[in-house]
């Protein structure tokens, strides 16, 4: 039975990533995840069978989010590891966040370029230790053979898919916490049932990594299908994923009073008719976060459209404007006038 579980997990992982013919030989070093240290290199964890090709190792499963966080157009390869003999719980955290047991890891690689020209830039890992979650950034070398711990972060010159030449920011360890911090602890953000597919979750259950199928799967629209979603669903999903990890109670931007979580329904908390608190010059010439029907007068849109540090939102994790995200939010605000 146990053998079957491992086999199923490996097969699933392959289905979700690049197809290769052989079962990967790599296996995860659980001590690297759990011990109170900061491994200097990514390979120490054994997450990948072929790291350069981003082929996951045994027990490591690829996943995607319905609506992803924008990171200057980076291709993002996401993986989850649940330790052998343990299971994630579907219903334990707020907002449907999967409760991953101690010894679990979330792995996210950021890449630019396609096909042969694809370059891995960084891999961020979230490790669930006895003391809580720890976030660490790893920077890939030029040869693409190894990624090294970069606690102080880095800057990398690269070209975005939109053709913009930028200085891409690899966050430092503290900046990881600026987004992942909630009530003083580091927590995962992405793997919430509402932003994961039912099929993937069902596969995780069959593989034995998850105890039961959570409620609310697939609530957020698939980002590439947003045109067929309602303006509200597309925009609220975007704001939940891109903004609400800070703009919510208990998080980095709690003092703003703005709460952009999917489950927030109070118009004022969402910024409608809300005056800024500590926006400083970020407010531009505008008076309210959101002016119904008037995206061009809304601080929210103004800050999304900026590339200027001190004005630009989100503050971390991007250097360019997300035109698609702006369009989705704009459409939502425009439609508000009809209400």
């Amino acid at each position: 039975m146990k053998h079957f579980g491992v086999f199923a997990a490996a097969a699933l992982a392959l289905a979700g990533a690049v197809a290769v013919s052989a079962t990967p030989a790599g296996s995860v070093d659980e001590a690297a995840i759990r011990d109170d240290a900061m491994p200097r290199v990514l390979s120490a964890y054994g997450f990948f069978a072929d790291a350069c090709a981003q082929v996951p190792g045994k027990g490591v499963t690829a996943y995607r989010l319905n609506t992803p966080l924008f990171s200057d157009g980076a291709e993002k390869l996401r993986f989850v590891y649940v330790p052998a003999g343990a299971q994630a719980q579907a219903q334990a955290h707020g907002e449907g966040l999967l409760n991953l047991p101690v010894g679990s890891a979330l792995i996210k690689t950021f890449a630019f370029g396609e096909g042969d020209t694809r370059r891995l830039i960084e891999t961020r890992v979230l490790l669930h230790r006895d003391s809580g979650w720890v976030a660490l950034p790893y920077l890939w070398n030029e040869e693409q053979t190894e990624a090294k711990l970069a606690v102080a972060g880095a800057r990398v010159a690269l070209k975005t898919p939109g053709g913009e030449q930028i200085s891409y920011r690899v966050p430092n360890k503290n900046q990881c916490k600026e987004c992942h911090g909630l009530d003083g602890a580091v927590v995962p953000i992405g793997p919430k049932a509402r932003n994961l597919s039912k099929d993937w979750l069902a596969d995780m259950v069959s593989a034995g990594h998850l105890d039961t199928l959570p409620d609310g799967a697939d609530t957020l629209p698939m980002w590439e299908d947003r045109a067929s979603a309602s303006a509200q669903a597309a925009a609220r999903a975007y704001l939940d994923v891109n903004c609400a990890h800070c703009h919510r109670p208990g998080a980095t931007a709690s003092n703003s009073g703005l709460d952009l979580r999917w489950e927030q329904n109070d118009p004022h908390a969402l910024g409608i008719g809300k005056r800024p608190v500590a926006a400083g010059r970020g407010a531009g010439t505008h008076l309210f976060d959101i002016v119904p029907g008037k995206p061009e007068e809304s601080i929210l849109v103004h800050r999304m459209l900026s590339e200027d540090p001190g004005v630009a939102m989100p503050e971390l994790g991007k250097a360019t404007v997300d035109d698609d995200g702006v369009a989705a939010v704009r459409r939502w605000i425009e439609e508000m006038s009809a209400q």
């Binding site: 200085s167 920011r169 503290n174 900046q175 540090p309 001190g310 503050e315 971390l316 250097a319």
Partner: peptide, 12 residues
């Protein structure tokens, strides 16, 4: 020459 972040130094 600051290129990112909303403040110079953040203490948490």
């Amino acid at each position: 020459g600051q290129q990112g972040s909303g403040e110079g130094l953040l203490v948490t």
